[in-house]
Amino acid sequence: MAKKTIKKIKTAAASANINIYRLAVPDLGERNVLQLAKKFSLDGTGKTGVMFQKKNEFVYSQGGYVLTLCRHSGAYRLLNKLSWQADDRKTNLDLKEGDAIRIAEKYIRKYGIVSLKECRFLKIVRLLVGERAIEAKEGTERVIGMEVAFQRIIDNVPVDGPGGKVIISIGQDTQVNGCTVLWRKIQKKERVVSGLRSNQSAIEEALKYWEADKQAVTVRSTRFGYFEEGWNRPQKFLQPAHIVFVLLGSANSRFVRKSVYVAAAALNNAGRITPLRTKKKRQSGRKETKPAE
């Protein structure tokens, strides 16, 4: 599945039929959370489960299951806390990638999470544990979980960024014990993209962003796709973007960190994506004192 889809993915050069979409305001409220719980075969009546609210989230808990719905993005996560990240201290999850993908796809289909036609396999991440004694010559390591991530595709263009993903978690018993759905609903097509700027101009914009620091910034790579924000962020529009991956520092720097600049790619874009740098309040000078007890 993955290879077939990759061939069809558009690049920045092909701008036909790329759009800017207005995203729907997330469906929130306790009723929506209970409906979502029912979708995953939980009771969802509020009688056997407990519903509570946190600053950014609605949470429904029933037995070992915890369903969390984010206020800002409409993203949700269902975890079986009895088995998620659990380790029986002996099993090494020896699941071939193809089998893990099949388990994940079956789960997505069973609960109608998203259409598999609207996404492609992205990657498999393993959760590992290890131990070692101070005098030992070697340690031990085992896989205790796998997470299969699928990437959203719109107009044959991949959705990039922290969002636009469905992630299925598989435990030591090869059973699914969690899913995370970061997939904002589209309300309508806002407008057709009139044209795309080059990724070179996006690189220049990225370098300008860090220009004030007068320091080495090394461009590692660029990608093109729709950009979807992460769990905690509201987002009004889904729009195409050039994503510039950089190294803050040079090849010779002793310390480096990575960063990302995301530039709106459409000539008629829906506004900037990477927030402007803000002037931050400085702390007053520290005196040579000891902390209070």
Binding site: R126, L127, E131, A133, I134
Partner: peptide, 11 residues
């Protein structure tokens, strides 16, 4: 006493 280390990571 730190005689053992046990770690967990995602990759």
């Amino acid at each position: 006493a730190t005689n053992w280390l046990a770690w967990k990571y995602k990759r």
